[in-house]
Design a protein around this nucleic acid. Structure first.
Ligand code: MN
Ligand code: MN
Ligand code: ZN
Ligand code: ZN
Lengths: 163, 163
DNA sequence: TTGATAATGAAAGTCATTTTCATTAATTGG
DNA sequence: CCAATTAATGAAAATGACTTTCATTATCAA
């Protein structure tokens, strides 16, 4: 099913009303393949549809989340981001703490072990969030160069996750 | 080394000053084995030491984080929590979405696979955050009972993590 | 004891949401 | 099509969790 159809069905199913702003926001949202903040999406939406207000983007994104078109992600930087979720399967994130570059990753073995882990505690897993923070190869080159200049090594060695 | 000593050394090392509020906050913080919010800690601190202000608790917690006495955690509920980190090794969290009960967990196999995963992308892991959300056994009993009464099944079956 | 200055408490400021409310726009029964 | 009903919207105000400011207090080295 197409995303617009997903939205329409959801709206009808809940006795809500169709509206232009929602269609326009969906169209712009789908055109951007990113982990986008409300402000960023609002800016993009306004370029094509100047009248639309922040609150409408905000409310519409919540609606999209409800009908499975998007999901919220949190990289602990103080603002929520949204990503497409319809037709996109589950994935986790690998984020460079230096330049912000990220990858979407899945490791099926880890996913299996997560199931095993929660079962040990009598839990039934609903969802999980796994963010791996580190430095990408590019940034390490820069860091090493700086370290060579200053004589101060910046990263410690093996770098096993802590805290 | 004792936690108070960790704090003292850090303070001396940075040329800061000892102060009663910091000692008092540390003492109360250490007495509470929880994932506590600033407000909760402030409330607990004020019971014993009424004069202490929110800002001081806030600043002191940041200080503790700097010297490794506590670390921040984020359960995506809008407020940051703090947990003891001195003498506590890395762990992840298993959280019941129904009652809020949680477990601190570690799966060494997962930790190894995380290393392997990031290497594939040329990253050097610094730290990670893994939160597993689900329903605990107790809550499922309640849910099943409700379902039996209403005839509406609440959880779907296998329940593999999504989103 | 004293001067320099770090620490503190109260209050004000930020900033990302979240809600309110008057107005606009879908929907629906005539 | 038309009017009544009420959901949706935009602008602005309100929230809430931090963060910072600033006048005052407490430390501490000399
Ligand atoms: Mn993603
Ligand atoms: Mn913990
Ligand atoms: Zn990078
Ligand atoms: Zn529970």
């Amino acid at each position: 099913m197409k995303e617009t159809a997903v939205l329409e069905r959801f709206i009808e199913g809940k006795g809500l009303r169709h509206s232009k702003p929602r269609e326009q926001i969906l169209s712009v949202f789908l055109s951007i393949e990113q982990h986008i903040t409300i402000d960023e999406l609002w800016a993009a939406v306004r370029k094509k549809h100047p009248g639309i207000g922040y609150a409408t983007v905000y409310r519409t994104l919540k609606l999209f989340a409800e009908c499975g078109l998007c999901s919220e992600i949190n990289f602990e930087d103080g603002t929520t981001r949204y990503e497409h979720s319809y037709g996109h399967s589950h994935h986790d994130h690998l984020i460079c703490t230096s330049c912000g570059k990220f990858f979407e990753v899945v490791d099926s073995e880890i996913e299996k072990l997560q199931e095993r882990l929660v079962k040990r505690y009598g839990f039934q897993l609903q969802y999980h969030r796994m963010n791996l923070y580190g430095t990408c190869r590019n940034c390490r080159v820069g860091i090493d160069r700086r370290a060579a200049r200053t004589g101060v090594p910046v990263h410690s060695g093996k770098g096993r996750a802590a805290s």
